[in-house]
Amino acid sequence: MSRVIFPLIVVLVLIAIPILGVKVAGLHLLFGVVIPYVAFAIFILGFIWRVIYWAQSPVPFRIPTTAGQQRSLPWFKQSRWDNPFTTGEVIVRMALEVLCFRSLFRNKRIDFRQLPDGTPILRYSPTKWLWAFALLFHWSFLIILIRHIRLATVPIPGPIEFLDHLDAIFEIGLPQLYLTDLTILAGLLFLLCRRLFIPQLRYISLPADYFPLFLIISIVCSGMLMRYFLRTDIVGVKELVMGLVSFHPHAPVKDIGTIFFVHIFLVSCLFAYFPFSKLMHMGGVFLSPTRNLANNSRYKRHINPWNYPVKTHPYEEYEEEFREFMKQAGIPVEKE
């Protein structure tokens, strides 16, 4: 259970820090400017470092997982997206993987169940839900992130404005409710509940699996609180963010609202934590040799940079040992 409690406590502490820091110690500058800068720097440098760290190791063998028919003879229809042969096909495979979670989708499974009276019914098993909610979460997250650009731009670019309108299309409440706020929360809660209540998942989960969930849930909640419930000085926020992105930071206005500092601090934590965690799957998926390579190793030689000579058993030694047997059996030999 400590695997759940520990990350929860850490997140609670992280929430408490800016409240104390701003309310009690009045460290507005630290929480509004310094920490976001530091966190962002850690994120960028850490991300680059991690990708370089991965890239430093070569890909010695061409080991794509082939999930469909290969390209061989013209009368067999190649599964181009599941078994790519060209770089173009690999790009499509990767795009389907990254944008649609194709492998996870493959997980779909139809269950046949019988009602007590024997009538069979059809239903989708939870594995399908994993795909759906994972997609929901990731896409919501992306849209929310893009939406935030409006805080850092004057004038707000058209596409961002459009996205913003789209997201609030139902025009519920004031300020208008964003759809993605709900969907990301739904996605997160589903992912968390899976880990908590499916025994198999609970068994394999580490604190490092719960921590990002708790952290992102807190970020979403603090963001929603800020927008829908607690008063924040939106002009002050925009001024601060504009200052940050234009590298002319100035101290935030005092009455900007503590909840903002909680939000930005948690976001900073997420950014700083990102390169050192499993969240790097975002970058790693592009480097996964079972997905990003074309299945054409018989067509084109793949080079292994550290391919070294090994001790083999050459034919000469073989014949040396078995020559008499071979001659008796009428098998041709090199040396009579």
């Binding site: 991690r50 760290y53 991965w54 890239a55 430093q56 190791s57 070569p58 890909v59 010695p60 080991i63 492998s103 996870l104 997980n107 594995t127 994993l130 994972a134 899976r194 499916i198 198999q200 998942l201 394999i204 989960s205 580490l206 699996d209 499993k278 790097m280 799957h281 790693g284 998926v285 480097l287 996964s288 040799p289 079972t290 550290w306």
Partner: peptide, 22 residues
């Protein structure tokens, strides 16, 4: 780890989603 990018990446990016479990 030095020789196989596959190993390095596979050590780092698993999110334990459980899709493989069964």
């Amino acid at each position: 780890l030095h020789k196989f990018r596959s190993l390095k990446v596979f050590m780092d990016i698993c999110v334990r989603c459980g899709a493989c479990a069964d």
